[in-house]
Simulated assay, not measured.
Amino acid sequence: MKQFSKVMVGLDLTKMDETLLSNIKIWSPILGIEKIYFVHVAKDLSIPEELSKNYPDLLAPVDETIIRGIKHELNEFSFDPTEYEIMVKEGSPMETVLRWCKIKDVDLLVMGRKKQLEGSGSLAKNLAQKSPTSVLFIPEGFGTDHPSKLLVPLDFSDYSRITVDLALKLAAKVNATVACCHLYEVPAGYSKTGKSYEEFKGIMLQNVQKDFAKFTAKHDYTDLPCEFILKEKQSEARYIIDYGKSFGADMVIIGSRGRTHSAAMLLGSVAEKLIQLNTEVPTLILKKKGENMSFLEALLKL
């Protein structure tokens, strides 16, 4: 699989890095990773002038110190030095990571998803929204076993085809199971049809089942299971997470679609909410490479 041959991994020098390194080590041969860029972004890498004057031999340059620390961690996980490059940069974390994703032409950005460690996760969400490439979130403390159950939320779009194709390829490599889910709801004006809520719920279910049958026939998906979930009061993302728990999913793969051609092509609202709520299993936001490039180019000109 050459889809993710170049990968960028964001490190923040906390215990989150251990989770990222242990997982990326396992996933590297599965994803076909050939080159990894480990990047750490600091707002300021300079040593205060007064301190450097008074103690000229006390501190090594900050970037060199960080690089040595990252190298030590990589050695602990037996990473081959020929397969990676360490980058320590100064500036705004989001803008800097996005800029280097473009410069290095990476296929996948890997970020940690914290739930108890210090940090709100807002940077990770913003990077996922605006990244020109796919983004994989790995939750804090997640184990390193190969995933055995992959969940793919569907809307029967072209992105659904792309995500199912990827899930099936990954599943074949690690002997995993793929399951899909699709959310449907009863339209607000159903009562004007003269039918009850229960009757119209049945009509909507039959309709989405037909759509799924057309989708699988069009793309030649044989025996692809799909759970049809009635959306009522919760957000779509919450239904996906709840079903994922009942299914025992250990990875979610969801497609991202651009909302508009102006201002920025951001994640679809369901994928965005899923990032905020899911802190338990890895989530891969799959994008067509370069789909946010117009936004990124505008950002880098600021």
Results as ranks from 00 to 15, higher is better:
residue 184 Y to L: 10
residue 152 V to Y: 05
residue 173 K to L: 15
residue 162 I to M: 13
residue 185 E to D: 14
residue 183 L to Q: 03
residue 155 D to E: 08
residue 174 V to Y: 06
residue 151 L to F: 13
residue 152 V to N: 03
residue 163 T to K: 06
residue 181 C to F: 06
residue 157 S to I: 05
residue 168 L to R: 09
residue 173 K to F: 13
residue 151 L to W: 04
residue 161 R to H: 07
residue 158 D to A: 12
residue 180 C to I: 05
residue 149 K to N: 10
residue 151 L to G: 03
residue 152 V to W: 00
residue 166 L to C: 02
residue 154 L to T: 01
residue 152 V to I: 04
residue 160 S to I: 01
residue 177 T to A: 14
residue 169 K to M: 14
residue 160 S to K: 02
residue 171 A to Q: 11
residue 186 V to N: 04
residue 174 V to D: 04
residue 150 L to Q: 05
residue 170 L to N: 05
residue 154 L to H: 00
residue 186 V to A: 05
residue 167 A to Q: 03
residue 152 V to E: 00
residue 171 A to M: 12
residue 154 L to G: 01
residue 153 P to R: 06
residue 151 L to M: 14
residue 149 K to G: 03
residue 185 E to S: 13
residue 166 L to F: 11
residue 166 L to I: 07
residue 176 A to C: 08
residue 185 E to P: 08
residue 182 H to D: 08
residue 149 K to R: 15
residue 178 V to D: 00
residue 165 D to F: 09
residue 150 L to K: 02
residue 175 N to R: 15
residue 183 L to F: 08
residue 163 T to L: 02
residue 162 I to W: 00
residue 187 P to S: 10
residue 154 L to F: 03
residue 174 V to S: 04
residue 158 D to H: 11
residue 158 D to E: 15
residue 169 K to Y: 12
residue 150 L to S: 02
residue 185 E to T: 10
residue 186 V to F: 02
residue 154 L to N: 03
residue 165 D to E: 13
residue 184 Y to D: 08
residue 179 A to N: 12
residue 155 D to W: 06
residue 181 C to V: 06
residue 167 A to H: 04
residue 174 V to A: 05
residue 159 Y to L: 14
residue 181 C to D: 05
residue 165 D to G: 07
residue 186 V to R: 00
residue 155 D to N: 11
residue 182 H to R: 10
residue 152 V to T: 01
residue 172 A to D: 13
residue 176 A to R: 04
residue 162 I to P: 02
residue 171 A to F: 11
residue 176 A to F: 06
residue 169 K to D: 14
residue 182 H to M: 09
residue 154 L to I: 06
residue 149 K to T: 12
residue 169 K to C: 14
residue 177 T to E: 15
residue 150 L to F: 09
residue 170 L to F: 12
residue 169 K to V: 15
residue 163 T to P: 00
residue 150 L to N: 01
residue 151 L to A: 07
residue 150 L to V: 10
residue 187 P to W: 11
residue 164 V to P: 04
residue 159 Y to D: 08
residue 165 D to K: 06
residue 181 C to L: 13
residue 170 L to G: 01
residue 187 P to R: 09
residue 178 V to E: 05
residue 151 L to D: 01
residue 176 A to V: 09
residue 177 T to G: 12
residue 182 H to L: 11
residue 173 K to V: 14
residue 161 R to L: 02
residue 177 T to W: 13
residue 159 Y to V: 08
residue 171 A to V: 14
residue 159 Y to N: 09
residue 187 P to H: 10
residue 162 I to R: 07
residue 153 P to N: 08
residue 172 A to R: 13
residue 150 L to W: 07
residue 166 L to D: 00
